[in-house]
């Protein structure tokens, strides 16, 4: 298995296929990534490569991180993530990983951080139905309802309640690649991708 790629979500649009179908796509600016560290079986116990993406102002990177980049003679980059690979010796530090590792029609797995919704009620967070709106009901419209049985004399762990929603790491599997644009480093995938515009997106080859 080869490494995936890091990208940034740009937004959504729709494009026409050759058959005239109009399909919704998410545009992701992916790569060029640079290989920073390589991990191998003998030394680290597993094979992986560390990829960095996106230029960044050096002042905004902390000194220990700059030290890590200097060790592998790579300019500091904004994002850094590790990818499992079969053989890390195929890669070398400073090597470029570009979006051409994927092609049209491929299936990919996508990981990113979803949009934060703050402290959300049970209706929004767990799709509860809420209380009745009529028949003399009062002040019980968006409530959670029952906390459970009375003979348990406690509320079970994992009871769906209001709380923080969103800002989660969300993985999506088997997403179709609609178009790859090597010149502009763009990858277009079918449908939506979690997160706001500008969110870092990890695009993996399917296992």
């Amino acid at each position: 298995m080869g490494a995936g790629i890091l990208g940034e979500k740009i937004g959504m649009t729709r494009i026409f296929t050759k058959n005239g179908e109009s399909i919704p796509v998410t545009v992701i600016l992916a790569g060029p990534c640079r290989v920073i560290q390589r991990k191998n079986l003998e030394k680290d116990g597993y094979n992986a490569v560390q990829l960095g993406f996106k230029e960044v102002n050096k002042k905004k990177v902390s000194k220990p991180i700059i030290g890590h980049f200097n060790k592998f003679k790579v300019e500091p980059l904004k994002y850094m993530r590790e990818f499992k690979v079969d053989d890390s010796n195929k890669y070398s530090s400073g090597m470029e990983v570009k979006v051409d590792i994927f092609k049209e029609g491929d299936k990919v797995d996508i990981i990113s951080i979803s949009k934060g919704k703050g402290f959300a009620g049970a209706i929004k967070r767990h799709h509860f139905s809420g209380g009745p709106k009529t028949h003399g009901q009062k002040e019980y419209f968006r409530s959670v309802g029952s906390m459970g049985a009375t003979d348990a004399a406690r509320v079970f762990k994992g009871k769906k309640l209001p709380g923080h929603m969103g800002s989660d790491r969300v993985s999506m599997k088997n997403i179709k690649v609609v178009k790859v644009d090597l010149g502009r480093n763009l990858i277009l995938v079918k449908g939506s991708v979690p997160g706001a515009k500008g969110t870092m997106v990890i695009i993996n080859k399917i296992v």
Partner: peptide, 13 residues
Amino acid sequence: MPDYIKQLEEEQL
């Protein structure tokens, strides 16, 4: 950064 979405949409015209 260029407006990639605008570019892609213009290519469809």
